[in-house]
Amino acid sequence: MNEQETLSSPEDEIDLIDLVSVLLKRKWLIIGITGLSMIGALLFAVGSLLLPPETSYLPNEYTPKAHMMINDSSSSGGGMASMLASSGLGGLASLAGVNVASGSTYSALAVYLAGTNSFLDSVVDRFNLIERYKIEKSPRAESRKALKEKLSASMDDEAGVFTISFTDIDPAFAQEVVNYSVQYMEERFTEMGLDKNKLQKENLEANIQNTYNEILKLEAESQKLDRAAGMGQYTANGSSMVLEATRIKRELSAQEQVYTQLKTQYELLKVQMASESPVFQVLEYAEVPDQKSGPSRGMLCIIITFAAFFGSVFLVFVLNAWDNIKKDPLAMAKLSGGGSK
């Protein structure tokens, strides 16, 4: 061991003892500040629980979530680009960072849609958030900003699950906002025709129902004409009821063939859809949460207590330094402006 290390060790030990002595000298100041801060934090936390949520300065918040499966297996660059171009969102999506030229995904589109003004305005108007949040200045811009702070849309790339959540002091209200957002997204994906099978299924269901109604109508007319023909009646233009009944039966036969073809297509499509994953599929709607998501009052008390402790330690060193300065005439002279140059 060299001489320098031997000499430095006692000095380091003396410095450490001096620091401890300074802390022990004003230990009650440290204990007092830390204890009062801890008690104040506890009273602050308990007081926020005693007040109603609408008037509490630290109310409980609830965050319901809804989960959706986004199938990116068919979202190739060219197909995605054509879909977005036909829906009028190509340019906007590019500005938002969704590359429609190559490698675009439906999941990226879902995250983008959750931040569009049209979606935000729809939620704001549906739940009258401008009045709820008492926004007076720049209501449209400020309501969008307030909604973005409370509403979150995220994508788990590994699981392919898209999640929407909303935070509010009213759990039932938060659930309504989340489920409305899910319905909006589902309708938006349908409008853009991203899920062709689902759109085709809806069209087939509508055509089948219309054809079925037409068959019922023609059957009723055919029965009516058969009864009239049996009584030897004629139509208004003088033609035979038998001829009119025959024409109606031909139309009925044609409609029945159309109905059969539509039903066949519908059943085949159902089989195909059963073996494929839809682009947008709701896994779980939001429920009314019975457990708060925040704030963590216990963690807040811990943070305040530790901050008060370290703050009091710093204050003790400042006071000690000031005492040392007051004992040094030269230093006091410098502070008073009378020191030598």
Rank of each mutant, 00 (worst) to 15 (best):
L16Q: 11
L16W: 13
L16K: 15
L16V: 11
L19Y: 15
L19V: 10
L19P: 02
V20I: 13
S21A: 09
L23F: 13
L24G: 06
L24M: 13
L24W: 15
K25A: 10
R26F: 07
R26G: 09
R26T: 05
R26Q: 12
W28P: 09
L29V: 11
I31P: 02
I31K: 10
I31H: 13
G32Q: 02
T34V: 07
L36W: 14
S37P: 08
M38E: 05
M38L: 15
M38Q: 04
M38P: 01
I39L: 14
G40Y: 10
A41E: 05
L42P: 03
L43G: 08
A45H: 09
G47P: 15
G47T: 06
S48I: 01
L49C: 07
L50D: 07
L51Y: 11
L51D: 12
L51P: 00
P53H: 03
P53I: 02
T55L: 11
T55N: 09
T55Q: 13
S56E: 13
Y57P: 00
Y57T: 03
Y57D: 07
L58C: 02
N60P: 00
Y62F: 13
Y62H: 05
T63M: 09
T63V: 13
P64L: 02
K65Y: 05
K65Q: 09
A66P: 02
H67M: 08
M69H: 07
M69Q: 08
I70R: 00
S73M: 12
S73T: 13
S73Q: 15
S74F: 09
S74V: 04
S75I: 01
S76I: 08
S76R: 04
G78V: 04
G78Y: 14
G79K: 10
G79Q: 10
G79N: 11
M80N: 06
M80W: 15
M80S: 07
S82H: 13
M83F: 15
L84R: 11
L84V: 05
A85Q: 14
S86N: 14
S86M: 08
S87V: 04
S87W: 15
G88R: 12
G90Q: 10
G91P: 04
L92N: 02
A93E: 02
S94V: 09
S94L: 11
A96T: 08
A96C: 10
G97M: 09
V98D: 02
V100A: 05
A101W: 07
S102N: 08
G103N: 06
S104H: 10
S104Y: 11
T105Y: 00
Y106N: 05
Y106C: 01
Y106R: 00
S107P: 04
S107A: 12
A108Q: 03
L109H: 02
L109W: 05
A110R: 00
A110D: 01
A110C: 04
A110H: 01
V111F: 03
V111M: 04
Y112T: 01
Y112F: 15
L113T: 03
L113F: 14
L113Y: 10
